[in-house]
Design a protein around this nucleic acid. Structure first.
Lengths: 150, 150
DNA sequence: TTATTTATCTACTGTCTTTATAGACTAACT
DNA sequence: AGTTAGTCTATAAAGACAGTAGATAAATAA
């Protein structure tokens, strides 16, 4: 949930880039996310340099970088923790298993590392902008409007 | 934990295939898994047709199919639930999001489906036997013993 | 038949994480 | 000053997760 909410909010912000800060309450309503919960999420994202905020009238949240520069992997790690199914297979938050006698030859770890790599390859190469493009393409297909333009 | 324990136990059983049923307590000790917890896991795997058991003296658990036929994806779904990061991206246990207005064009879902597919591709194509082979290869490399044999 | 071995089942109990809420506080703008 | 909006801390409800306990049923052996 946390990562899902966070991503929804970020995508919403990416869609209205350069239109000034957006209020938490506005985001919360538009994306139907509990407002107080969204507060925590956005704060977390701010503390990790993904968002910036402005207080007082005319304030709110905005992306601290271009949508092209914000990768989903980063966001998910901040909000949900490491991508890897097992801590011993994580690149960014490695923790060994205590039962494992020889990690180098642990079959489960070998496979889970493959899984982690597959996930990371997708999530660390996909940016908010990429997602918006995918959505555009999908809705164009859906309405029968061709993707190419003059 | 549950899936990890389950896989460890299954790999152990795969290693001693055709040597008759193995006691829960034996498995629990060898793989350092809490015995009572392992009971539940093995029972679950039995109810899903992955294991078979025999009661009384000389009893215990054994694989109900060859290690080649038991795919990791199956095991993980039984013990940990669907692979997909989000229920709306699951193939085997699809549940829609309530907030999502148009699922066909939900960007997050599109990406998470890609992630799910990547995971499923690995886990549904890797069998217990495959894992054992990988381990063999890894330990051969580690000890400097070449993989090929006479 | 009885005793023994071993799996089976039900229920339960902490602990931790997730999800969420409340309310006081601080900064900025008018 | 007053209002708007983000910041911070504490906390709580709910559920998942990890593990435990103990009684039961089935198979085998004597």
């Amino acid at each position: 949930m946390k990562a899902k909410y966070g991503l929804r909010a970020l995508l919403s912000l990416a869609r209205q880039e350069n239109q000034g800060p957006v209020l938490i309450s506005e985001l919360a309503e538009k994306e139907s996310i509990p407002k107080k919960f969204l507060e925590l999420i956005l704060l977390d994202l701010k503390n990790h340099g993904i968002l910036q905020s402005k207080k007082g009238k005319g304030g709110g949240y905005s992306l601290s970088r271009r949508p092209e520069a914000i990768k989903l992997g980063r966001v998910i790690r901040v909000l949900d923790g490491p991508l890897a199914p097992l801590p011993c297979a994580s690149q960014t938050a490695y923790v060994p298993c205590d039962e494992c006698e020889d990690e180098k030859t642990c079959g489960i770890r070998l496979v889970m590392k493959d899984v982690r790599d597959a996930m990371a390859t997708i999530l660390d190469s996909t940016s908010l902008a990429d997602v918006l493009h995918q959505v555009e393409k999908a809705s164009a297909q859906k309405t029968g409007v061709p993707t190419y333009q003059i």
